[in-house]
Lab assay of single mutants.
Amino acid sequence: MSIQHFRVALIPFFAAFCLPVFAHPETLVKVKDAEDQLGARVGYIELDLNSGKILESFRPEERFPMMSTFKVLLCGAVLSRVDAGQEQLGRRIHYSQNDLVEYSPVTEKHLTDGMTVRELCSAAITMSDNTAANLLLTTIGGPKELTAFLHNMGDHVTRLDRWEPELNEAIPNDERDTTMPAAMATTLRKLLTGELLTLASRQQLIDWMEADKVAGPLLRSALPAGWFIADKSGAGERGSRGIIAALGPDGKPSRIVVIYTTGSQATMDERNRQIAEIGASLIKHW
């Protein structure tokens, strides 16, 4: 067993022997301040990774656009098919120029040779490549099948209805392509620590998230040296922004954090800054 596999296998073990965790309302004060600064709703939840206990939450059962955070769930569904012998990570998928959609920095470079399922998941999570996500959605049967996968996990809230990039439209009061912070946090925890996926697939999923290259201005910008984070960000229309993450000190994750916002007129930089400040408060009061 590799060191990384050992780390993920012992996530519940280490967490069980940690000192009790206590909620700190100071972080919620910052979440509410972010709402004021952005002029928009902000949803927040913080779960203990081992027990699933909610440590703090704000608007945990209000719907927010998922945006690209759905790509972690998508690759979880792909990995479940791999575990069941219905898919192979090494299978190569070929596609054409007509398949390319807006923001496809990886797939646009491989029109000639195609990409493997493993490479597509890596591109979808680490670079948020939209064509990679659409190609992977095709392998599982489309958005409705991802929703069905989530329902089978016990998540009857999260739903995907459309493809990239239309799913980022974020129309107010439109339930399409949305989740709730509580539902997303619980589902992410199941994917990373539950028995739904094999140990190898859980490790692969967290490795992809740990290698995320496009979430630097968010929670990662607030992390002290030595902290662990595996995350996936999302951005959408109407001032929408979000991030889902597993993080913790001492090089291992111990909490799940989900943050979503929508309806702001603020710039992307300002949305990023507010999420980073929430992260800084979380870490300060850990």
Rank of each mutant, 00 (worst) to 15 (best):
H24I: 07
L28H: 13
V31L: 06
V31Q: 01
K32R: 14
D36W: 06
Q37Y: 04
G39I: 04
G43Y: 01
G43I: 00
G43S: 08
E46Y: 15
E46F: 12
L49S: 10
L49C: 12
G52C: 14
K53R: 13
L55C: 04
F58Y: 02
P60R: 14
R63H: 10
F64I: 10
F64H: 01
P65Q: 04
P65H: 11
T69C: 13
C75Y: 00
V78T: 14
V78F: 10
L79H: 09
S80D: 14
S80R: 13
V82T: 11
A84I: 12
Q86I: 12
L89Y: 13
I93D: 09
H94S: 06
Y95V: 04
Q97V: 08
N98Q: 07
L100G: 10
P105K: 04
V106T: 15
V106R: 15
T107N: 11
T107V: 13
K109S: 04
L111A: 05
L111G: 08
T112Y: 14
G114S: 04
T116K: 14
V117Y: 12
R118N: 14
R118I: 13
E119N: 08
C121L: 03
A123E: 08
A124P: 00
A124L: 06
I125C: 07
N130K: 01
A132N: 00
N134C: 05
L136N: 01
T138K: 15
T139L: 08
I140Q: 08
G141H: 07
E145C: 15
L146N: 13
L146V: 05
F149G: 06
F149Y: 07
F149R: 08
N152H: 10
N152I: 11
M153P: 01
D155E: 03
T158N: 02
D161M: 04
D161K: 03
D161W: 02
R162S: 12
R162N: 14
E164K: 01
E164F: 00
L167P: 13
N168T: 12
E169F: 04
E169R: 04
A170V: 02
I171G: 15
P172S: 04
N173G: 06
D174F: 14
R176K: 06
T178I: 01
T178L: 04
A182Q: 14
A183H: 13
L188F: 03
K190F: 02
L191A: 12
L192H: 05
T193F: 07
T198H: 05
S201N: 02
S201C: 12
D207K: 03
D207L: 09
A211G: 14
D212M: 01
K213N: 06
K213D: 12
L218I: 02
R220Q: 08
S221K: 02
S221A: 11
A222E: 08
P224C: 08
A225G: 08
F228Q: 15
K232R: 02
S233R: 01
G234H: 00
A235T: 13
A235F: 13
E237L: 08
G239D: 12
S240I: 02
G242S: 13
I243T: 14
I243N: 11
I244F: 08
A245Q: 01
A246T: 05
A246S: 06
L247D: 00
L247K: 01
G248N: 12
P253K: 02
P253D: 06
S254L: 05
V257Q: 02
I259T: 03
I259K: 00
Y260M: 10
T262R: 08
T262K: 06
G263Q: 10
S264Q: 11
Q265N: 06
A266H: 08
A266N: 02
M268N: 14
D269T: 06
D269K: 03
R271V: 09
R273Q: 11
Q274R: 08
Q274D: 09
Q274G: 09
E277V: 08
A280F: 15
S281G: 08
K284M: 03
K284F: 06
H285G: 06
W286A: 02
W286M: 10
